[in-house]
Amino acid sequence: MSFVEFEKVSLRYSEGGPMAIEDVSLQIEEGEFISVVGPSGCGKSTLMKLISGLKPPSDGYVYVNGRQVGGPLSIVGMAFQAANLLPWRTTLENVMLPMEIVEPWRSSLRSKRAEYEEMARAQLARVGLAGCEDKFPWELSGGMQQRASICRALIHKPRLLMLDEPFGALDAFTREELWCMLRDLWQQQPFTVILVTHDLREAVFLADTVYVMSKRPGRILVKREIDLPRPRDLEVTYTDAFAAHVHVLREAIGRVREN
């Protein structure tokens, strides 16, 4: 069985209401980087809620790590478009937040705080935030806040990282910087990534597999393997092979929007 499996999953938010997603089946292998693209309101975020156990499916089954999802999973880390850092905590304290909640870190936090803080500092250094540990979130730029948010999502060493349009609010240059940051993080310590995005270039540059979803009710329309060699450099985004992938996906999305 794959690391994440959807078996004919449907979800409606209210009884008798419209389907948010319908008949979705997909498999994600451990260590795979997948991306989900589609028009707004197609239920991309719903997929994340299903995998993280925040919502049970109305029909079908969701399995993560060989077990049916029945509630929140501590092997999951999440980051969203808004960095959602807590303004009364320093950057370091923000990154430490999951350690105060997730077992087994939580119960050993008191005795090993120094060690865990060292981990958090190392994680911050890895995303280029060395020296910002004691700054408050509002003293950081938007891109730096998002870096810290991704640190927070990774600090408890989750096996599955879920990102919901994490770079959507950033300018184009910062966004490309953060693509490279995420690529490097993923290549250093293997974990599975589900990236929900509007940005096709982002999806093709980062992911192994890109799924295109239809308008509401969300269904998987296209599954496309991105066979570009790794490690990928930003240069790759100017190649013909890259452009071809983006083009095919763009056409698929175009068809979705017309129907």
Binding site: G53, F80, R152
Partner: peptide, 23 residues
Amino acid sequence: LEPELEDVLRSLGASKLDILIKV
């Protein structure tokens, strides 16, 4: 409370009391 922030915490397995105290 921002719903995304609550989602982050709940997906980590935070209880209602955790969310109340931490956030």
